[in-house]
């Protein structure tokens, strides 16, 4: 490929954009609308997933130990539990800590006033959190086998509900993204097809004067890439500040949501979404233009 030809492809790609301005606007708008919908769905899904994980992390397991264990054996139990796969943290709660906590929670010093460090009825315990609640059952059965463990308490119902919810969100999310992507591909290739069709005479003439198929394709590919990039950037640039604004509004007006879980920051989502969408836009542009020119090259 000659340098002058590369210059020509890029030049023609850009002029194509401006000379067919109506089709260009239509194509960019289509790509932008599709990418915008995909971006919004991505934001929703990513946040749902992240909130689920945050809630999951709060669902810990309480492990109560037998009484009168030596500090050495308590340390040993703690070490054993840390070694179990998927256990992310192990926090020791001494009987004294537990009593303090209880007093605070009940806000009733009188009821518990008879108890102090000497006649504390509570036992030592561990608060365990795991990285993925799907493995809760496995972790519990491992802990049961450790000597010195008296009782284990976990929120089985909540766990089951969360697990089901998680599955539903994953499946629905995956399917809707798939459908959206498929619809986008169809709409975008069609728009580009129309744009190519309006220039079929040009392609025809190029064939008659001896242009190779690739020489004809390149300007259209450049054009497709440009449409893809602009079509991806426009909705992303609009939706980033929009997203940040939405989150701050939710925190202000629905403060309880902030107590349960936190939203992902705009940066976290868009630093992944922008390159992905631009890539998708470029791919769509290229696939759209190559497939739509194909038909007109057979002369």
């Amino acid at each position: 490929m000659k340098f002058s030809s590369v210059k020509y492809y890029i030049h023609e790609g850009f002029t194509g954009l401006f000379k067919n301005s109506l089709m260009t606007v239509a194509s960019i708008a289509t790509v932008a609308a599709c990418i915008f919908i995909v971006a919004v769905s991505c934001c929703l899904l990513a946040n749902m997933r992240s909130m689920m994980t945050q809630i999951e992390k709060n669902i810990g397991i309480s492990v109560f130990l037998e009484d009168k264990l030596s500090p050495e054996s308590i340390t040993m139990i703690s070490e054993q539990m840390k070694r179990i796969p998927h256990v992310s943290s192990v926090t020791y709660i001494s009987p004294d800590d537990a009593l303090e906590e209880l007093k605070k929670e009940w806000n009733a010093d009188e009821v518990l006033s008879g108890f102090d460090n000497n006649n504390n009825p509570l036992s030592s315990s561990f608060e365990i959190s795991i990285d993925n609640i799907e493995y809760q059952k496995d972790v519990i059965s491992e802990i049961k086998q450790i000597d010195g463990v008296r009782n284990i308490r976990n929120a089985q119902n909540e766990t089951d509900i969360l697990l089901k919810l998680n599955k539903v969100i994953s499946i629905v999310g995956f399917l809707s993204m798939l459908i959206l992507a498929a619809i986008s591909v169809v709409i975008i290739t069609n728009t580009i097809k129309i744009s190519v069709y309006t220039r079929k005479t040009e392609i025809n003439i190029m064939k008659y004067v001896g242009a190779t198929d690739w020489f004809i394709r390149w300007p259209f590919i450049v054009e497709g890439v440009l449409i893809g990039i602009i079509g991806a950037l426009v909705p992303l640039i609009i939706s980033w500040p929009l997203y940040d604004k939405c989150i701050s509004l939710i925190y202000v007006h629905l403060p309880f949501i902030g107590n349960i879980a936190h939203f992902l920051s705009g940066y976290t989502i868009f630093s992944v979404l922008i390159p992905l969408c631009i890539l998708a836009g470029i791919l769509l542009g290229v696939i759209g233009s190559v497939t739509s020119i194909h038909k007109h090259l057979n002369v």
Binding site: I205, V209, A211
Partner: peptide, 28 residues
């Protein structure tokens, strides 16, 4: 090749239409 209906590119000038045939074969 010359056709009855000329087949010129309407959005290019006379000069560009002719230069186009040379560009296509990657002329300098």
């Amino acid at each position: 090749i010359v056709f009855q209906d000329f087949r010129l590119l309407p959005k290019k000038t006379v000069y560009e239409n002719i230069a186009f045939a040379m560009r296509v074969i990657e002329a300098h």
